[in-house]
């Protein structure tokens, strides 16, 4: 059963379409990546789904049209992690994470003690132990991204939208984040199973952690890779739409798990 449905989505800036005729769905339990070159429309796609830019077409979460949902209703169903948070004020990490509870609070309500306890727990889980009272602005870019991840985690929504969450993270942290997201997806909420849509630049992360890859080219979804079902040669051919001369190599790590790596080849 799909959590996110996108149908004939068209969006852009200044009357110029960046994405056109985009249709796909994200099913329960799935982690779906959106891959594409710079400027291909990955961020535009996420912003259009969030309803932040002018668009036509239909986006729905759990069967509810996003355009018809109120902000709080949408936030309860769907969390969002931007490339970079716009926070520019001095504020503690714990207060940033507590923002994630806003969809469940009234205008004049404040986070409860149990919400705070949960926030501290999630801060430790994402790897920011001992940083809860630190100033968010004093964190490294990678730590800031982990803090925003913690904020999305406490919201307890069913769908997670992420816009290049790995861009500021080092090698180990980006793998930890993807593992954390996979573990988050595997946990069910009261409303049912979870899913995530993530735009990525790091193809290797996408190949090893995602279930499906949506390949954006020429303003639309040029092809879809099904990691578990497609052969390596098929994956390779499809990814060449975006990356040109590449090959996909398969390795096995010490646990015996298959690891796919994209390698650039001479023309």
């Amino acid at each position: 059963m799909s959590i996110l449905n996108v149908s004939n989505l068209r969006a852009g800036y200044d009357k110029k379409d960046i994405i056109n005729n985009v249709s796909f769905s994200v099913n329960e339990g799935e982690l779906v990546a959106v891959l594409g070159a710079n400027g291909s429309g990955k961020t535009t796609l996420v912003k259009a789904i969030c309803g932040m830019i002018t668009h036509s077409g239909e986006c729905s979460v759990s069967g509810e049209s996003i355009d018809k949902l109120k902000s709080k209703q949408l936030a309860r169903m769907c969390s969002y992690i931007p490339q970079q948070s716009g926070i520019t004020i001095d504020i503690s990490v714990i207060n940033v994470v507590l923002m994630g509870f806003n969809p469940y609070l009234g205008l004049l309500q404040y986070p409860t003690a149990s919400m705070k306890e949960k926030a501290y727990k999630v801060i430790e889980q994402v790897g920011l132990k001992g940083k809860a009272e630190d100033n968010y602005l004093s964190l490294s870019e990678g730590q800031k991204q982990l803090c925003i991840l913690a904020r999305a985690m406490v919201a307890d929504s069913r769908l997670l939208l992420m816009d290049e969450p790995e861009s500021a993270l080092d090698f180990n942290v980006r793998y930890n984040v993807m593992e954390y997201i996979r573990s988050w997806i595997s946990q069910e909420t009261d409303g049912g199973k979870r899913a995530a849509l993530v735009t990525l630049h790091d193809t290797n992360l996408a190949l090893n952690y995602c279930d499906r890859l949506l390949l954006i080219n020429d303003s639309t979804i040029a092809d879809t890779v099904n990691i578990r079902e497609d052969d390596i040669s098929v994956i390779q051919e499809k990814l060449r739409i975006i990356y040109g001369s590449i090959s996909i190599q398969s390795f096995t790590n010490k646990n015996g798990d298959r690891q796919l790596v994209m390698v650039r080849e001479p023309e």
Partner: peptide, 17 residues
């Protein structure tokens, strides 16, 4: 405080910006 975030973030945190 919620309005101190980027606009898409604020909206996705349930704020009627």
């Amino acid at each position: 405080i919620l309005l101190a975030t980027e606009e898409t973030e604020a909206k996705m945190l349930g704020v009627n910006i």
